[in-house]
Design a protein around this nucleic acid. Structure first.
Length: 196
DNA sequence: CCCTGATTCGC
DNA sequence: GCGAATCAGG
């Protein structure tokens, strides 16, 4: 593919709209995000913000590795440390077999009952078991860490500190991991007869 | 890990 | 001019 006027125009438009290079690349098709970024730079519109602090204040302080008259093309002076690196000796939180609440911060306003957990009352039971199991291995992601392919199932009480998102790999397309998809999408049949 | 943009440089 | 490879950061 080549950069036709139309494609460049779309590129400019999307870029100014704040679309990411990868999104633009997908939209255009036939190009990678690198191509998009490269073009963006060549077009001289690397900076989206008209005037003001952009995202990360890049420090143009990039020292060039000086001239390389010779053909020596080795930009990878990676540290060659043969040291096998001893055990990291990571600090580990207490095993704590009792997940109980040691120090809770009951910041719950007044009465207000807890927000109804989506993982409500009684679902297949099988699914519930799966859920409680996988929740132990949940990634515990924060809201900002969620992505297209991380399970967005909320766990815990949003009103307290222990609240996070599952974060496990999602089930292709779905917003949740397999286990959570199980309790999220019930066939109306099982939830039909609400006592009322 | 996933993602982001930035830069370099052979083509 | 182009964009893969690489770099640097979140």
């Amino acid at each position: 593919m080549s950069w036709t006027d139309e494609r460049v125009e779309l590129l400019k438009k999307m870029w100014s709209e704040g679309q990411s290079a990868s999104q633009i690349a997908k939209e255009l098709g036939g190009v990678t995000r690198n191509a998009v970024i490269g073009k963006v730079h060549r077009l001289g519109l690397s900076n989206r913000a008209a005037g003001g602090a952009a995202t990360t204040a890049k420090a143009p302080a990039k020292e060039k590795p000086a001239a390389k008259p010779a053909a020596a093309k080795k930009p990878a002076p990676k540290k060659a440390d043969p040291k096998p690196e001893p055990a990291p000796e990571a600090e580990e939180a207490a095993p704590d077999p009792k997940p109980a609440a040691p120090a809770r911060k009951q910041i719950i306003p007044a009465g207000q009952p807890l927000p109804p957990q989506p993982s409500a009352n009684e679902i297949p039971a099988e699914a519930l078991k799966k859920v409680s199991e996988i929740e132990k291995s949940a990634k515990k992601l924060s809201l900002l860490e969620l992505t297209e392919r991380t399970c967005k199932w909320p766990i815990g009480d949003p009103a307290t500190e222990d609240f996070w998102f599952c974060g496990l790999p999602v089930q292709a397309g779905k917003p949740y991991c397999e286990a959570h998809v199980g309790v999220a999408f019930q066939p109306m049949s099982s939830r039909r007869d609400r006592k009322r």
